[in-house]
Design a protein around this nucleic acid. Structure first.
Lengths: 245, 245
DNA sequence: ATCGAGTATTTTGCATTCATTTTTTGTCCT
DNA sequence: AGGACAAAAAATGAATGCAAAATACTCGAT
């Protein structure tokens, strides 16, 4: 930025924030992290144009680092770049979602297989702990708590796979479907919820026995069922409107 | 570029070439494709600095689109960005390679599972065809032909999975290990080679029966064995020196 | 000759500028 | 009023400019 700014030069958001822990030496890296969060959190509606100028003002930077970040987000699949028409939030078709869920299923399936090779008893105990916690949420019909704990279980399995490359890829794909995934879980019907709990029991069982191939199968099927539930929810979202008001 | 160029403005490489079929509207996209190829093909040695200025001259562009492409390649894991020290070709540690092979194994395993759901008899026939072709290369000890056909078989399976997202991710990871993968195949010992042929028989068998879960297991194990062979080759590369001269 | 302080050169990161293209606004005509 | 066209405004894509950092180089001391 310049030294003397006439009008809107003051950054709308605090310059660095450095929220949490991540710190990037370069402006580009910093902006990439912040912009990715901004997009993943759904601050811009689906299919809408990404306002380059506005974001520059918001972050208090010039267009160069922002545009670099946009290119990366486009490569990650979060946004689309239309020639001479700027960036748009990528609208995921139903097919896109199905594909994403399947890839996630494949990655978790892999994570489970690898986890069986290296997981410690302590890690299994920790996951069991989470499982009981989640069961509590299930009994109390605490959807939010259930969702969070469920996420942590799946992340624990990925972590137990001891593969940073896998972890990164997993995080990437997870980011793309975050909003949908969340609402899909909320919309989960009673029956599917009970089914998911049973599947989780089976996951734990296979994990305890370090049955990699078996766990791989169960995880894939588990995610496949999640996919079905999510797609169903998106296809008939009128339930929401009927239940909410 | 401009109309009148004083000194070194003439692009060293042909302006667009448009080799094959890909065409990008933006300079950035064009450069991204060309630079990615340039890196993947190994034109810059491992761990070496990526010469920004030189590449700009080579492609006949300014630094802005090139730097955007560099950011994307860094996000893809092909290069590293050191703060204030530019880009370097990412040097893969043995651990990195193990992780990459495992992720590839997971993706192919997934591809096989999905392929069983949707593959047509014609596609299977085509893969059988490739298999026999590969067997021919094997009998003739034609390593290069074998390698190529092998690649095509695996790509056919990924294609049969009918999942563009998976295909893209697969291509991405494949690019990262291309050089290593190739040399690993060349270094393949006679015994491992025969083993791989048997594994391929099993793959075809499971595919014919559309046994998704089984194929998933076989593919994972097949890639795991490839990984072992590759890592062994890298750990003791003196065999090459002994055999070549 | 080797090492190291100090300077010159190059490189990097980002801001700014410029030429196009797209989008919006305004005007006129039916 | 509504639509076609043109001018104005804004945006995009890429090049250039500039300050800071890193690297290379010079030269002197040991």
């Amino acid at each position: 930025m310049k030294s003397t700014i006439p009008d809107t030069g003051v950054p709308i958001a605090p310059p660095a924030q450095n929220g949490g822990d991540r710190q990037e030496a370069s402006l580009h890296g910093e902006i990439l992290l912040r912009l990715r969060d901004y997009v993943v959190e759904g601050n811009i509606p689906d299919g809408a144009r990404v306002p380059e100028r506005r974001l520059c003002e918001m972050f208090g930077i010039s267009r160069t680092p922002l545009r670099e970040a946009l290119k990366v987000l486009a490569a990650e699949g979060l946004i689309e770049l239309l020639p001479n028409r700027g960036a748009r939030i990528r609208q995921l078709s139903q097919r896109d979602l199905e594909e994403l869920f399947d890839v996630m299923a494949g990655l978790e399936s892999l994570a489970g297989r690898l986890a069986c090779e290296a997981i410690t008893d302590e890690e299994i105990t920790a996951i069991e702990q989470l499982h009981y916690e989640m069961y509590g949420h299930y009994l109390h019909r605490d959807m939010h708590g259930y969702f969070q704990t469920n996420q942590r279980i799946h992340e624990s399995i990925v972590a137990a796979a001891r593969n940073e490359t896998l972890k990164t890829a997993y995080a990437n794909f997870a980011g793309r479907i975050r909003r949908v995934r969340y609402s899909a879980n909320f919309a989960r019907k009673r029956q599917r919820w009970a089914e998911a709990m049973r599947e989780h029991e089976a996951i734990l069982d296979a994990l305890r026995r370090r049955a990699g191939s078996e766990l791989s199968d169960i995880l894939f099927q588990h995610l496949r069922n999640k996919r079905t539930a999510a797609i169903e929810h998106l296809t008939e979202p009128q339930e929401d409107a009927a239940a909410a008001p």
